[in-house]
Amino acid sequence: MHFDYQMAMGSFLVAIVVGLTGMGGGALMTPMLTVFFGVPPLAAVSSDLVSAAVMKPVGSLVHLRRGTVNLRLVAWLCAGSVPTAFCGVLLARALGHGDRLQNVIEIALGVALLIAASGLVIRSYLTMSAGGPRRAPRDTSPDDAPSAPISVRPIPTMLVGAVGGLVVGMTSVGSGSLIIVALLALYPKLTANRLVGTDLLQAVPLVWAAALGHILFGDFQLSVTLALLAGSIPGVFLGSLASSRAPGGLIRWALAFVLLASALKMFGVGTTPMAWALVAAVVVGTAAWCLLRAWNGLRPLPLPHHDTPPAQPVRTGHSKADTSVVTH
């Protein structure tokens, strides 16, 4: 059995992003397998989910030990996602076999990737607008401080899990990219690392259910899975350790760019049109983002401040009323 070291290195880099942000596992790993290594889409989905079933607990245990997990949210999400994840595998199989099935999986992957990229942009906008003068002052407490208690909404949370589980079962995309964005919309008081920790833990039974379905009914390839595991286990561990200290804004934008490129590739867009589309997305997206920041009362570009600190009064030993300059 041939071991692919390049595939292992690619999975290591993807897993670091997963550990840092809770996103990008299937959204990056599956397109990486199909685009760069020529793995058939269904085999890529199956192998990625089986490796994720081993990778996800590594990152989630780090967050569980730190206390950055909301267990009630995890329970309600799993109540919706576990059964639908298994059903997603059966639905993918019911759509056909051979080239027809691969085409359906590619289109489903492309749609899921576009949704994931859009969700990342929406999440960044919500985070940015929450700190602008047009909104109430944001909470500036550190991520590791105790978060305010939240009121769990069982039905919406279970529906999010159900939709996410179905998409994950069919495409392997969504256990992080889609569900974590929905969690942010439902529970904006959750701090960033608690969002990541909660999402990583709820993804464990979700991907287990989907992985079992793909082992039984999918196109599982052991050689691909072993290469993914060799890189992803240390990668997700390192990313999870750094998740509470590393800024995620730049990573989210880079991830959205990669998701868009992967989606265009899944839709069969040629290299030259895809390159122009990505350039246009960067130019138009940057201009639109600057306008949105200005509309929210922020500087168009988040450049670092270089303000001169106010001059400190010279201590001369005289009384506060004496403002004369002492010369020697």
Score class of each variant (00 low, 15 high):
94 A>H: 05
175 S>G: 12
46 S>L: 03
154 P>S: 05
283 V>Q: 03
38 G>M: 07
15 A>M: 01
56 K>G: 05
195 L>Q: 08
246 A>H: 04
99 D>N: 06
88 G>H: 06
210 A>M: 07
30 T>M: 08
104 V>R: 00
170 M>F: 01
209 A>G: 12
180 I>Y: 03
170 M>T: 03
195 L>A: 10
230 A>M: 05
308 T>P: 14
227 A>S: 15
74 V>C: 14
268 G>E: 01
66 R>N: 15
217 F>T: 03
294 A>T: 15
113 L>N: 09
86 F>E: 03
77 L>E: 11
64 L>I: 10
13 L>I: 08
49 L>C: 12
121 V>N: 03
126 L>G: 14
78 C>P: 11
85 A>M: 10
247 P>R: 01
182 A>D: 01
274 M>D: 00
60 S>G: 15
281 A>L: 01
164 G>A: 14
189 K>L: 15
235 G>N: 14
6 Q>L: 15
189 K>E: 13
45 V>H: 02
71 L>H: 14
218 G>M: 04
74 V>T: 12
320 K>Q: 07
40 P>Y: 00
48 D>S: 15
76 W>S: 04
2 H>V: 06
52 A>P: 06
229 L>N: 09
193 N>P: 10
82 V>N: 11
29 M>G: 07
265 K>V: 00
1 M>R: 12
315 R>K: 13
67 G>M: 05
159 L>Y: 01
256 A>W: 03
92 A>N: 00
157 T>D: 10
43 A>P: 13
71 L>N: 12
19 G>I: 10
158 M>I: 09
191 T>E: 04
96 G>Q: 01
243 S>T: 11
290 C>L: 07
304 P>A: 03
133 P>L: 05
88 G>C: 08
201 L>R: 04
144 D>K: 00
199 D>R: 07
152 V>P: 07
30 T>E: 06
14 V>W: 00
284 V>N: 00
285 G>P: 09
131 G>H: 10
40 P>N: 11
10 G>E: 02
25 G>T: 02
122 I>N: 08
306 H>N: 10
288 A>N: 13
10 G>P: 02
200 L>T: 03
54 V>S: 12
93 R>D: 12
157 T>G: 09
234 P>W: 05
62 V>G: 14
238 L>S: 11
107 I>N: 02
293 R>D: 10
159 L>K: 02
85 A>D: 08
308 T>K: 11
39 V>P: 05
12 F>Y: 13
266 M>V: 01
